[in-house]
Design a protein around this nucleic acid. Structure first.
Lengths: 174, 174
DNA sequence: ATAATTAGTTGGTAGACTACCAAGAAAATT
DNA sequence: AATTTTCTTGGTAGTCTACCAACTAATTAT
């Protein structure tokens, strides 16, 4: 089902995620990844010809990593969305990808599918139809809030995800 | 009231806006601005020591430019928000700034104020109190949709701003 | 088994770009 | 007229992405 372990490729992705987590998006450079993995810089572009390719690959990689840490019960949907949207690192990650893929249709499609998938997952976990318009607009608003949150020089408490949900006729307490 | 014309500085900002409009955010580089204005590259960093400084300055500059073209009647709020959020260039502009200012509190504050101001303007134009929570969440959701729109490889028609407004109990037809 | 093809790896380089700096020119103050 | 401040220049240091030609290891085919 999953690709063969492909150790080298995976090592790159892991190192990249570590760097992002520890030093942020702007610090994610080929030299740093090379150092962390012991590979040559030029070698990295063999696996990921353009930086955008790496970014897109990281999309799934980070998802996998997160999946390994989070229990899949419905009660954690709120927490999941909260970090997804209010964690500055996470948000910047998304924005960076969005900017990097620029006008590349192919990569856009991958990202778009990824985002759509997330909405379906949330909807399902909330016991709603997979293509629920309310869930979509709920998540949309969350992302908008997250965007604004990102520019807040002194962010206080994280906004309540549940309150936003209510606004869209969604109850998080199953 | 306004700063003195400061021609050089303004010339830089104008050239920068032109480049962004014509070639997108990624094409906005010091060499290109230098060429367009006839200034030396090193000179640009005299006016804007860091790239983020230029970005922030562009925030107001683009606002001014847009103000000169748009009539200020209420009926155009919809159109204004539509381009603001669904125009890929505009959206990328915001994201680029967000990423570039990173953790600089000072610049974050400027951007944050800018975003807050926009909401107040929208609220006022809609005949609502300046600090209207509904308008805020309305704009938030729009931005979230805009974000998603940006990753759509084959964007169809722009979503209806009015429909989103209704969802937040806001009517655009004054 | 061995030849041939494909996948992975290396070192080096080209091309951009931001940021900085020392020194000189122009403008404004005193 | 002298001095201080602002503006301008040319040059450089340091990063980074992307590319490429050559080499090696691993697969696949004969």
């Amino acid at each position: 089902m999953a690709k063969p372990d492909n150790t080298t490729r995976q090592r790159i992705l892991d190192a990249a995620l570590d760097i992002i987590e520890a030093q942020g998006m702007k610090a994610l450079t080929q030299p740093k990844i090379a150092k962390a993995t012991g590979l040559r810089q030029s070698h990295l572009t063999y696996y990921f010809p353009r930086k955008a390719d790496l970014f897109i690959a990281l999309l799934d990689a980070s998802h996998s990593r997160a999946a390994g840490q989070t229990p899949a019960d419905a009660s954690s949907v709120e927490a999941m969305l909260s970090t997804l949207v209010f964690d500055r690192g996470r948000m910047r990650f998304l924005l960076a990808i969005l900017l990097e893929i620029d006008d590349d249709r192919e990569l856009q499609a991958v990202l778009h599918a990824h985002l759509a998938h997330l909405v379906r997952v949330v909807a399902t976990r909330l016991g709603r139809p997979a293509e629920d318009a309310a869930v979509q607009s709920f998540v949309d608003e969350l992302r908008g809030i997250g965007l604004r949150h990102l520019s807040d020089p002194a962010p206080g408490e994280r906004p309540s995800v549940a309150a936003v949900a209510n606004r869209h006729g969604i109850s998080l307490t199953t």
